[in-house]
Amino acid sequence: MGLVQEFKDFAFKGNVVDLAVAVIIGGAFGKIVSSFVDDVITPLLLNPALKAAGAENIAQLTWNGVQYGNFLSAVLSFFVIALVLFMVIKAVNKVNKPKEVAPAGPTDDQVLLTEIRDLLKNK
Rank of each mutant, 00 (worst) to 15 (best):
N47W: 05
N96M: 15
L72K: 02
V4Y: 07
E100G: 13
V17K: 06
A20D: 06
E6S: 12
N70T: 13
V16Q: 10
L50C: 01
D38S: 11
G14I: 03
A82P: 03
A28K: 13
K94Q: 12
N47E: 14
K13G: 09
K123W: 04
V80M: 10
T62K: 13
I32K: 04
G2N: 13
E100D: 15
A104Q: 13
L76V: 11
A104G: 09
T107F: 00
F12V: 02
A91L: 14
Q5D: 09
P48L: 08
S73D: 06
N64T: 11
A53V: 05
E100A: 15
D38Y: 06
P43Y: 01
G54F: 05
N64S: 14
L19S: 11
L119Q: 14
G27T: 05
K121G: 04
A91R: 12
L83N: 10
E6H: 12
G54T: 02
V88I: 14
G54Y: 01
L44G: 07
E6Q: 15
L113K: 15
I89M: 12
F36P: 00
F10I: 08
L45T: 03
L61K: 06
I25A: 04
I81S: 03
A22S: 06
I89E: 11
V75L: 04
L85K: 15
V66I: 10
